[in-house]
Amino acid sequence: MRNNQPLRDVSPTRRMTAALLWMVGLLLLAGMTLIFVPQASAQNPTPPPAISDDQVNAIAKEMYCPVCENTPLDVCPTQACAEWRELIREKLAEGWSEAQIKQYFVDRFGDRVLATPPARGLNWLVYVIPPIAILLGVFLLYSAFRAWRRSAPPPAQASPPAAGSAPASDEYVRRLEEELRNR
């Protein structure tokens, strides 16, 4: 059985820890939603007759051709990629949307032309596994923390010097020295 003193002393810590964990969690969540939300693609309304290189590159940037693996289509210097870019230009001139063009390339050359696998079939795993694994890690760490806290001796003997009677700077010097000794 414990007395109330340490408990009260601990609670702000716990709040702050919870806040910190929340923050990390939120960051993770933000990352995950970013993964899941499909990129809002800039639709170009009724393309002008002449398609600029920039319009082509905007699409090509997110595509990959099998000839130069891992190099985005917009910067790949090979002839094959130049022709692919030309094809994008033609399709744009015909009034195709970005999504249509990408779909055409997928049908024609396979899923690998896309920078990230389309989320269907087995490919779901790409997006599902990392968040699951990370959440699992968070859970494990959290339960480990709890187990360690339970086994912790009451911090009574450690608190007096830090009580605030000594000036903060001396406390700091003491800490620096202690850390040097402890190496």
Partner: peptide
């Protein structure tokens, strides 16, 4: 990666 996770799983699970 499975290795990473399982080994960290281990860390906690070992006691129970």
């Amino acid at each position: 990666m499975s290795e990473v996770i399982t080994e960290s799983t281990q860390k906690v699970a070992a006691r129970s």
